[in-house]
Design a protein around this nucleic acid. Sequence first.
DNA 1: CATTCGTGGCT
DNA 2: TAGCCAAGAAT
Length: 345
Amino acid sequence: MTASKDTISARLLEWYDVHARTLPWRAPPGESSPDPYRVWLSEVMLQQTTVAAVKPYFAKFTERWPTVDDLAAAPEQDVMVAWAGLGYYSRARNLVKCAAAVKKLGGFPETEEELLKLPGLGAYTAAAVAAIAFGQRAVVVDANVERVVSRLFAIEEPLPGSRKTIRVKTDGITPDRRAGDFAQAMMDLGSGICTTRDPKCLLCPLSSDCQALKNDNPARFPIKAPKKIKPVRQGTAYWIERDGAVWLEIRQGTGMLGGMRSLPDDGWHSGGDGDGAAPVDADWEQLGLVRHTFTHFSLEMSVLRTSIQSDLAERIGQWWPVAEIDDAGLPTLFAKAARLVLARG
DNA sequence: CATTCGTGGCT
DNA sequence: TAGCCAAGAAT
């Protein structure tokens, strides 16, 4: 694109220079480039996650691990505990792998192509880091850009089929210079002006460019394919107490909640109910039900409690002091169960 | 290309 | 309130 004054990118950047949000991972105005480590960390945390949810985690991570080498030196379980509650835990597992890879490389690669090879960086994040941290021209497409571009060009084809068209259109309006600022400007616009519901078209710097606004109702875009309904699964979690400690295990594999500390359960999963089989033969007290909705299914999880004197044979885990349960790094589902248990006394 | 991955906030 | 949605990646 040319840098002429009357382009979409020029109008957007002019708006951004005045209205950019101040965010912890952005370089202060006037400072050269943001720290690639902070850009990468924030971008991974922000995948499918709101700015408000990310802020406290970003603060915690950067205080504890100020550099990518610090993070690479951290035990994986420490990172998983620190990530607990943020969701999509494959991000945390890949974060550790990526930090090690970057340490080995002696720093972050600076091109989109090389960044794409790192674990946890897909098309979006590789482009975002290349543009924001290294000043490369890259076509950055996230959910905000999809919404803004769908409206700008009144794209009638529904997502996700329209992704190819959206990429081409985004490429067409991405400037050669300040591609990183352009990407962040699109996100700020999508966050505050070109919102999903009730877009603030009167305040939009691109209103004169917007085909959707010209023709009909911008809120109609992007058109989306209908969603599938979520099945409801039944399951059980088991609270086993001994001498003021509760039995916790670590979920194996790369599947749901993999690598996260948890209560023993009866094998419930996205595809089916649990079998109701308790981990030990004991007197179980029914404490209540925890309802939790994941991305693709809902779970009604019974919480059962018992006390035992013996050890647990044939199981891998640890006795965790009940008084310190908040430090165990339980994902939210099991944190809810723990809350229920403690509330019952 | 479709599915599997969390969670909290919003309306 | 029940559903919708958010700076997506991996398979």
